[in-house]
Nucleic acid binder design. Structure first.
Lengths: 333, 333
DNA sequence: AACGTGGCATGCAACGTTGCAAGCGGAGCC
DNA sequence: GGCTCCGCTTGCAACGTTGCATGCCACGTT
C-alpha cells in the first residue's frame, strides 16, 4: 500500500489539508511550507489515491470504448487514436468488446459495470435506433457511426451516403458499368450498411447505369472471410461484374483474395474499392483504393463531445458531428 | 447520480448493512426481507458504486494492458483475447500505449496513474532488463515477451529461439540456401529480436548452410513500412537471396509488397515466412507462412499470473511461462 | 422458569480525499 | 491600542461501501 495524505502530513508536520493543497498545486501555501511538504511527498513516494478521489469528486478519469471487436483493424486504429486523444484530456481508456451482441450493447448503455467511467464511446452494431433512444441516463454517451438516435445522443460519423456515392462514381469514371456492392446487412437495424447502399444506388442512378439486384451482396459481418465468401458467391453465380465496391476494407481484402485466386487480374478484370482506409489496404497487392475517413478527427470529436457534456450542459441538444473523408485512389481501381 | 445503499435502505425500511448483504448475495437474510430490499433496489435502479468499493476493498477490478501500439494487428488481436479473458476474472481492461518509448514504459512500471489498476500486463520494448528489475513494488506485473527480468517479474512468451529455428529450418527444407533474416534490432536491449536471430543462425549452422552478415537486415520498428524498406535495401544491394524469414508478420507483409513490385514471384523466386500469425497474413496474396503462437494461451496465462499474485503470495518466485506455438505453412513458402 | 442457541438485523468505524468555513497571527490603519 | 484585513493553515464532514462486533428475538432444552 502506498502512502496517504495523512502519513505525508505527519512527516511534514502539517495538516492533511495542507498537503492536499500542495498536491493540487492550488491555493495559498507558503513557499517554505510547500517545500517541506514536497520533500515529505518525495521521501514517502506519495501518489494520490484514485479511488478516494473518484469517490469524493465523482470523476474516475476513465472513459470506456465499446466496440464489436478490438482485433478488427479499423477499430484497432481508432482505439489507438482514442487512447492518444484521451491522454490530452487526462483520461484513460477502457476497452469493452460487445461482439456485436445486442444484449451486451444494451447492458453497456445502461451503465458500464458499477459506474466506473465518466463517459462512453459506443459503436453500436445490433442495437436498434429505438433501443438507443430508450436509455436510462447514466454517463454521457457518444455514438460512433450514423445512428438514428435523433436528438438524444451525440454522434460522430462520416456521411456514408456521400462517401459511398463518391466511391461508386469513381468506379464509373474508370469506365466500369457492372459494379457490385458488397456488404449489405439486411438482418441488422444498424443504419450504416443501408446508407452505403443508398449512396451506391444514387451514384448508379445519376450516371444512368442500370442497377442490378444480383450485384448487391449481403454479408453477416465485416470480416475478410465474409468478403471472400461474398465474392465467391458472386463469381459462382456467373453474374457479369467488372468492379466491386466493398463497405469495408476487410471485406475488400477478402474479396481480392478470392478474385485473385479465381485468376482475375486486379484492376484489369475487376476493380476493387473499400471503405475505412486501414493499413492493410495500403500494403496489399495491389494496394487498395478506399474511402478514407479522418480517423483522427473521429477520435478528437468524440472525446470533445464527452468533455463538453461533462463540463457543460448535460441536457443540451444532441449533436451530430460529420467527419470529413477523402477518396484515396490506389492500384486496385 | 445513482441511488446509494442508504436510499435503498430507507425505502425498504431496513438498515444500510442489510441492503449491502442483499447486494452481495451473501450472509443471512430472511427471504421476506430480501424480497423487500430487492424490490427497492429495482425501483431505484440501484447500482453499486465502484469508487466506494474500490476505496473500501482496495480492488478496482481493472487491469492495464501496456503495449507499444494497439493499432498493430498483433497487439490488437492479443488485446481482444485479453479483454475476453479478463471478463472471466470479472476484470475490465485498460489500454495504455507506450509507443515503445522507454520513458513511458518506466512510468507505467512505477504505477499506472494513481494506483487505479489491480495489475499490469506490460509488453516492454525499449526498457532494459536492468530497469525492469529495478521496480518499486506497486501492483503485480506480468511481462509479455522474453525479457531477462530474472526471477523478479512473471513473464509469458513463446520460445523465440526454437520458433525461429523451426521457421528457418522449414525454409531450408524447401531447398532454400540464401535465407535472409529481416527484423534485427541492434539498437534495442529488448531481447526478442536477438533471440530470433539466434534461432535463425542455429538452424543455418545445424544444416551446414553458410551464414552471411549481408543477409541479416536490421529495422527500426516492426511495421510494414520497415519490412518494405528492409527488403528494398536487400534487393538494391544485389545480395543473392531466395528466402526471407521476417521477425513479424507485419515485416513480412511489407517485404512481400516490395518483392512483388520488384517483379519477384512468391514463393517461386522468393519464399517468405513471418512470425505472429495475424489475420492479414492469412488473407494476403500469397497467404503467409508464419510462426503461430497460441495467443489464447498467452492471454489466459498472463491473467492467471496476475490472479495468482492477487490471491496468493505476492512474493512468490517469478514464473517463466512458455507458450506453445506451431509453424503454419501457407502459400508463401 | 431460566438458559443457551442460532437466525437475523443493525451501528460503528474506516478506506483517502476535498469543499467549506473557521481559526490564527501579524501587518496596517485610524 | 484596538480595529480590520490578509495570508496562511486547519478541523470537520461527507462521498458509499463493507468488516467487525453486538443486539435482539424466538425457539428448544434443561
Amino acid at each position: 500500500m502506498s502512502a496517504s495524505l495523512r502519513q505525508v502530513a505527519e512527516r511534514a508536520g502539517v495538516s492533511v489539508r495542507t498537503v492536499s493543497n500542495v498536491v493540487s498545486g492550488f491555493a495559498l501555501v507558503a513557499p517554505e511550507t510547500r517545500a517541506r511538504v514536497q520533500a515529505a511527498i518525495d521521501e514517502l513516494q506519495y501518489r494520490p489515491n484514485a479511488a478516494a478521489r473518484h469517490l469524493r469528486g465523482g470523476r474516475s478519469g476513465l472513459v470506456a470504448l465499446a466496440i464489436p471487436e478490438i482485433a478488427s483493424p479499423y477499430f484497432g486504429e481508432l482505439a489507438g487514436l482514442l487512447v492518444e486523444e484521451a491522454e490530452k484530456h487526462s483520461w484513460m481508456l477502457l476497452v469493452q468488446q460487445t461482439g456485436g451482441d445486442a444484449e451486451h450493447e444494451r447492458g453497456l448503455l445502461g451503465g458500464v459495470r458499477g459506474q466506473v467511467v465518466d463517459g462512453l464511446v459506443l459503436s453500436p452494431w445490433s442495437l436498434s435506433p429505438a433501443e438507443l433512444r430508450r436509455r436510462p441516463d447514466a454517463v454521457p454517451v457518444v455514438l460512433l457511426g450514423e445512428q438514428d438516435a435523433d436528438g438524444l445522443l451525440d454522434h460522430v460519423a462520416v456521411d456514408s451516403v456521400a462517401a459511398a456515392r463518391d466511391a461508386t462514381r469513381h468506379l464509373i469514371d474508370r469506365g466500369r458499368r457492372r459494379i457490385a456492392a458488397l456488404g449489405l446487412q439486411p438482418h441488422l437495424e444498424n443504419g450504416t450498411a443501408a446508407r452505403r447502399v443508398a449512396g451506391y444506388r444514387r451514384a448508379l442512378a445519376e450516371a444512368g447505369v442500370a442497377a442490378d439486384p444480383a450485384l448487391e451482396i449481403a454479408v453477416q459481418r465485416l470480416h475478410r472471410a465474409d468478403g471472400a465468401d461474398g465474392m465467391r458467391r458472386l463469381l459462382d453465380a456467373g453474374t457479369p461484374v467488372d468492379a466491386v465496391f466493398c463497405f469495408s476494407d476487410q471485406l475488400a481484402l477478402g474479396a481480392m483474395q478470392t478474385a485473385l485466386r479465381a485468376g482475375l487480374r486486379i484492376p484489369a478484370d475487376l476493380a476493387v474499392a473499400g471503405f475505412d482506409d486501414v493499413e492493410d489496404g495500403r500494403y496489399a497487392t495491389p494496394s487498395l483504393t478506399t474511402v478514407s475517413p479522418d480517423k483522427t478527427a473521429i477520435a478528437r470529436e468524440a472525446l470533445a463531445c464527452l468533455a463538453d457534456r461533462l463540463t457543460g450542459d448535460r441536457a443540451a441538444p444532441a449533436r451530430r458531428i460529420v467527419i470529413p473523408y477523402a477518396l484515396t485512389v490506389r492500384d486496385s481501381t
